[in-house]
Design a protein around this nucleic acid. Structure first.
Lengths: 347, 347
DNA sequence: GTGAAAGCGCTAACAT
DNA sequence: ATGTTAGCGCTTTCAC
């Protein structure tokens, strides 16, 4: 067991309170005293016991991040951003994987969370609007994604609809008219899924361009197959169904990467025969053959916004509680080879 | 502030000790008493305060995992495996990213770690053999990777040399003779890098086949460019230098994926003109065009072995301390399209 | 500006 | 089989 505050106090010839003051940057400490304490800390290699601090102060300095899986690139990159944002603010991050399973998601916001985490960033994929009530947990909670709106907590989401609209506009601008959509929701349009919101953006863009939507171009994909295999399958089916198309809007980058693979196998050239745009801007989409145009929803900023919201909630006094707030970062279209633009290194 | 053991004890009509006994599965509790306590726990939605437990018992139930970055697929997938292994054993995981920077790696095993984590899994890339001394920290530590051998801690690594040898043998078996290697160490062979160990395996396989190594086929890549861009660059240079080759052994999958991209741009067909094998078996290598043959170093088992070693060390009494131990899982070659085998779904 | 002391919620030694 | 109790190392209120 390492040295304690008492040890430091003894070596520095002060009381434990003074040591505490120095460690917590309490301003009214005489410089000389402060120096003696710091010296003692270094001499003993003293480090505060966070369990004790946590017990006393009610804060552990650790937040949770609950995501479906780190094997999904988007969430691995989101975790990277969250961990860096949290570290910059002196917080550690415990990563929990829900596997996108409803029971594990419910667990993440309930019992599984003993009094330990200062707060939780939670990105559900199975819970929906009807579960908003389950979010009324005791600790600070910030929601990520678009499964639940108007819940009792802060919410960081993205411009799903307008960015999807912009994506389709980009395809229209390069002259495409038969634009397939890959990854639509099986249940049609419910307000709360990324897929539905992005589909709405697609429809809006077509409508503005005066193009009638062809249902044969809209391909559904089970949520569990929102990956390369699912994208490949959808593209193969498009071809084998004999549907004519000159562009694909994939509702996620991994779907898009699968589409690229399948189009290659079908001997269709990208972007000459078919242009492709994805959604998420994961690192990988810059390195596919060809590199893939995509929507950058502002992942990095989502992480920063979320961590900052959470910190605010953690330090907020119960009395002057602000009402829950929903924020979204700006998005941008990253143009690459799959829509006829050269790849920009490092983009 | 939630209910405490005292509250539970009061509701159940027992003493706090009995509550503690029930929670910690102490065997000698009368069934009826146990039931009353469990009922009270549920009624109050009581959850133990881990800070208090940690303070008292010296255990927090949280371990650390320090990796370069979750944006590198291999480490994201490793983190996934570690988190699942740890969860199965009731431990949480705080993920730290070192960015592969020497100073942050040193920090990970020193001051940055206040008395909080029960133990640390550490995958260094900048620290080397000469830093073995820095690992003599107080808490349990298990090392991952191959930067440091014979250090003072347990070490989970992989069969770098023999698996690399097997990779090259696979290329030889399909009739390739001019096998390029992408990703060699700039500093030539030092014992402690994955690159060097895998290069040795390459040389051994060639030697056994009676093929003389052609230095023009061995391409070096800076550690910081062990990614798709670095792999692509190396492949482009191979072609532009006019080197003849019919296969590439990429020392990592991301290098290999870059190689695939570059070969496509150079109008070389894979595997007809050039066969490609990677190393790591990240999910992505199964979805490239073409899908990529690779070495599966046993990542999943590495995680389990590491977590189990760490748990043993955590619960070990200082007295009967076992000497440090080095373990490696089995590897296997996953054959895919890039060496002429059909992709197997889900492989 | 600094010290003394209480107590956060829990575990475990000891008592019954 | 269960109860009593003393801390674990820290923060914080209250003195001085």
């Amino acid at each position: 067991m390492g040295p304690t505050m008492h040890d430091v106090a003894r070596v520095a010839g002060v009381s434990i309170k003074t040591v505490s003051n120095v460690i917590n940057d309490y301003p009214h400490v005489r410089p000389g005293t402060r120096d003696r304490v710091i010296e003692a800390i270094e001499q003993l290699d003293y480090r505060p016991n966070l369990s004790a601090r946590g017990l006393r102060s009610g804060r552990t300095g650790v937040i949770g991040l609950a995501v479906p899986s780190l094997r999904e690139n988007y969430f691995a990159e989101l975790a990277d951003s969250v961990i860096r944002a949290a570290e910059a603010r002196g917080l550690g991050v415990i990563v929990e994987q829900t596997g996108g399973q409803r029971d594990k998601e419910l667990l993440a916001v309930s019992t599984s969370r003993p009094r330990f985490l200062d707060g939780l960033l939670f990105s559900p994929v199975s819970l929906g609007q009807e579960d908003a009530g389950a979010l009324a947990i005791d600790g600070p909670l910030v929601l990520l994604g678009e499964r639940i709106f108007d819940g009792p907590t802060d919410h960081v989401t993205m411009h799903n609809m307008s960015s999807a609209q912009a994506a389709v506009q980009h395809l229209l601008e390069i002259g495409r008219r038969r634009i397939a959509l890959v990854g639509a929701d099986l249940n049609g349009i419910d307000e709360t899924s990324s897929a539905s919101l992005r589909l709405k953006g697609y429809m809006r863009a077509l409508e503005e361009a005066g193009i009638e939507m062809d249902p044969a171009l809209v391909r559904t994909t089970e949520m569990s197959r929102w990956n390369r295999a699912g994208g490949a399958e959808a593209a193969h089916l498009l071809v084998r169904d004999g549907v004519e198309f000159d562009a694909v809007f994939a509702l996620s980058d991994t779907l898009g990467l699968g589409v690229l693979r399948a189009l290659g196998e079908e001997n269709l050239r990208v972007p000459d025969d078919v242009a492709v745009i994805g959604f998420d801007n994961i690192d990988e989409s810059n390195y596919s053959v060809p590199s893939m145009t995509t929507v950058d929803p502002g992942r990095e900023e989502i992480a920063v916004l979320a961590v900052d919201r959470l910190i605010e909630r953690i330090s907020e006094k119960t009395a002057d509680r602000r009402p829950p707030e929903t924020v979204k970062p700006e998005f941008r279209i990253v143009k690459r080879e799959s829509t006829g633009f050269p790849t920009i290194e490092g983009e």
